[in-house]
Simulated assay, not measured.
Amino acid sequence: MGELRNRVVQVRYFGDPDGLEVVDAPLPTAGRGEVRVHVLASSVVFTDVVIRRHLYPQTISLKPPFVLGYDVVGEIDQLGHDVTGFKLGDRVADMTVVGSNAAYRTLRADEVTRVPGGVDAAEAAALILSWTTACQLLHRAAHVQRGQHVLVHGAAGAVGQALLTLGRMAGLELWGTARGDHAALVRELGGTPIDYQREDYTKVVPGGFDVVFDGIGEDGCRRSLAALKRGGMLCAYGYTAGVQAHRSLFSILTWSARLYVLGWLSRDRRVYFYSINLMRARHPAWFREDLARLFELLAARAIQPRVAERISFAEVAEAHRRLEAGGLEGKLVLCPDLPSHHQRERELTV
Rank of each mutant, 00 (worst) to 15 (best):
T113A: 13
L189N: 03
A122V: 13
R5G: 04
A121I: 00
R222T: 13
V350L: 15
V37R: 02
G263H: 14
T133C: 10
T165K: 06
G330Q: 14
W264N: 09
S266D: 09
A245E: 13
L20C: 01
P336V: 05
G154E: 03
H153F: 05
K229F: 09
R7N: 07
T202P: 05
A184V: 01
G232M: 12
P65V: 02
D290A: 06
T47P: 05
V307F: 13
E123F: 05
A156H: 02
H342M: 00
L225H: 06
G167R: 00
L27P: 08
L228I: 10
A30P: 05
D195K: 08
Y272W: 14
V212G: 06
G89F: 07
L88P: 05
V98I: 15
G167T: 02
T177Q: 01
L265I: 13
R168I: 01
P26A: 12
A236D: 06
A102Y: 03
R280E: 12
V39I: 14
W255G: 05
F209N: 07
S224D: 11
L294M: 08
L127Y: 09
R288H: 06
C235P: 01
G208F: 07
T177C: 04
G220T: 12
L127M: 10
V152N: 02
H341W: 02
Q197Y: 09
L348E: 14
G217V: 13
K331V: 15
R187C: 02
M1L: 06
A245F: 11
D48K: 04
P284D: 12
R198Y: 10
E345G: 02
V97W: 14
D219R: 14
A93E: 05
